[in-house]
Amino acid sequence: MSSTHLDRPSGVLQRAPSGHLGPSYKPKEEKPTATVSTEVTHSNVTILPQTPQLIALLTMIRNKATNRADFIFYSNRINRLLVEEALNHLPVLPHTITTPVDRTYNGVKFEGKICGVSIMRAGEAMEQALRECCRSVRIGKILIQRDEETSKPRLFYDKLPEDVSQRWVLLLDPMLATGGSALMAIDVLRSKGVPEEHILFLNLIASPEGAANFAQRYPKVRIVTAFVDQGLNEKNYIVPGLGDFGDRYYTL
């Protein structure tokens, strides 16, 4: 990835615009304004609906004054929304049943097996939300760290379900900055035989640059995110962002 590409990510309509947010029954002037997600045109990116409630949750976890207990609780609530949204991208089959009051319900049944794969360590913070939606789901782990000498991401460890190639993979990492480690995690999954289109990448806050990198490298991987932020600073931190997710969740 070239630095010029990072400077001008493709597919960005408008960085971090303002939006009047509120229920549809309220006239526009009664809806307060907030900064909402950057719009991107990549068809593989799904951004959660920017409801006032979601913005309030994001405000909580972005705020540096928020304590750890609240940070954990509110990030988990958003993570659950992400998992619920991601699961909707899985295929279903028609399934008609008879209800307890003897009526017919034209329902659906879930098709295919899934597993979670978290990119250590921050990705593990999203496992709780996944478990709350899918009780006994298998969860693999991938450890990728930045190499001190080359400052490139390097794979240190991976442990995945043996039949991972037969499963839909929910890849977990809360922050998508440049996308270096997430793209490497996808390389790992691909090398184990997981088709690109069977990977769903769940993340809380993405940068337009990271989203553009994904669209270019793996356009069939579905990204499900709560918010595409304004951009990256000179240290490649997402801005305004929320700081280091792992530190705030585990140690701060």
Partner: peptide, 10 residues
């Protein structure tokens, strides 16, 4: 936010 000099309007 914890990122220096960054604010968010929420």
């Amino acid at each position: 936010t914890p990122v220096p000099n960054e604010t968010y309007r929420g």
